[in-house]
Nucleic acid binder design. Structure first.
Lengths: 162, 162
DNA sequence: AGATTATATCTTGATATCAAGGTATGTGTG
DNA sequence: CACACATACCTTGATATCAAGATATAATCT
C-alpha cells in the first residue's frame, strides 16, 4: 500500500463511477520521475551542473567529435523550447563550457561546440552520473529492469507520436 | 530503435567503459513523464486548470467530506515546497475555488477547503482527466499495464525511501 | 531576379518553482 | 512558569521554463 495506492483508494471511495487504474500507472511514473530527478541532481551539483546544463553538455559529448550541434538539434534532443535553449546556451557560454561558432553552412545559425573544459567536465560528470543511476535501479533485478524497459518503450511509443 | 536507443548507442560508441543500461530505463521514465504531462495539460486547460491547480483541487476532492486539508497536508501529498503551496493556494483562493479557514485546533495554521464552485469544477474535470488517461494507456493491454504497475511500484519503493 | 514562404535563433513578458529565512504559535523541559 | 525548541505558514529573491513574437537568412516559386 504505497502513496499511489492510497490515492486510488480515496478516489474509488469518492467516485466509484470512475476507472482510476490508469491514474495509478501514470501517477507512479510521475512520482518515480520526481524521485529520480531529485536523486540525480545531487550528483550533478557536485560538478557545478544542473539538469539543464548536464543535459546540453552530455548531448554534445555523446555526439562524438567534433562535439558540436546547432541549437535546433539540441532543442530536439532535449525537449525544450527555443527560448529555454538560448538561455541554457548563454549560461554555458558564460561558464566557458561551450562556444558559439558561426555555422559555416547556414548564415542564420550557430554551432554550439564543447570547449576543452566542457569536455573534461562532462566526461568526468557522466561517469559519476552513471554510477548514481546504477544505484537508483539497484532495487530491480536485471531481468526486471529489462521487462520494465520493454513496457516503457511500448507505452512511450503509443504516447509520443502525434 | 527509439530516441532513447539512439542515445545509448551514441554513449556506447563514445564511452564503452560505461554501463549505460540504467540510463535507458531512467531516460524512458523521464520522456514518458514529459509526454504524459503535456497530453494531460490539454485536458486541464479545458477547465481553466493547470497541473498545479488540478493537483490541489483533486487532493481536496478525493479526501472526502468536508473536503479540507491543511497546507502542510497538501504539501506532503503533492511534493512541493511550502512557498509553492502558498502560491498555489493564493491563486485558487483568488479564483474562488477554495477558501482559507482558520484551523480551530491549531492557531498557527489554516485549513484549505473546497468551495462549492471548486467542488463542481474538479468533479467535472476529473472525469475528463480520467478519460484522457485511459486514452494515454491504451497502447498497453490491461495485463501489460498491471505488469508495469508492479515494476514501477518496486522501483519506486527502492528509490523513494530516504 | 523578385516575391513569398520557411527556418534558425533570440527577445520579451509572464509564471511556477525552489531555497532560505522570517514570524507567530505550539510543545516540552527544568 | 520561563525558556528553549519545534512547527506552520508566509515572504523574498533568484532561476528555469514557456508562449508568442521579432529579426535575419535561406529556399522556393513564378
Amino acid at each position: 500500500m504505497d502513496h499511489v495506492d492510497h490515492i486510488l483508494k480515496q478516489w474509488r471511495q469518492e467516485r466509484p463511477d470512475l476507472d482510476v487504474d490508469p491514474m495509478g500507472t501514470i501517477g507512479r511514473v510521475k512520482r518515480l520521475n520526481h524521485a529520480l530527478m531529485r536523486a540525480m541532481e545531487k550528483t550533478w551539483a557536485k560538478y557545478g551542473l544542473t539538469d539543464a546544463s548536464f543535459d546540453v553538455l552530455a548531448t554534445l559529448r555523446r555526439e562524438g567529435a567534433p562535439y558540436a550541434l546547432s541549437p535546433s538539434d539540441l532543442m530536439a534532443s532535449t525537449m525544450v523550447t527555443s527560448g529555454t535553449m538560448t538561455h541554457r546556451i548563454n549560461l554555458l557560454e558564460k561558464a566557458g563550457l561551450i562556444e558559439r561558432v558561426k555555422n559555416p553552412e547556414d548564415g542564420r545559425g550557430f554551432l554550439i561546440s564543447l570547449s576543452q573544459r566542457g569536455f573534461d567536465l562532462i566526461d568526468e560528470a557522466v561517469a559519476a552520473h552513471v554510477e548514481t543511476q546504477a544505484q537508483l535501479v539497484s532495487g530491480l533485478t536485471d531481468e526486471q529492469r529489462q521487462q520494465l524497459d520493454a513496457l516503457l518503450r511500448q507505452f512511450l511509443a503509443g504516447v509520443e507520436q502525434e
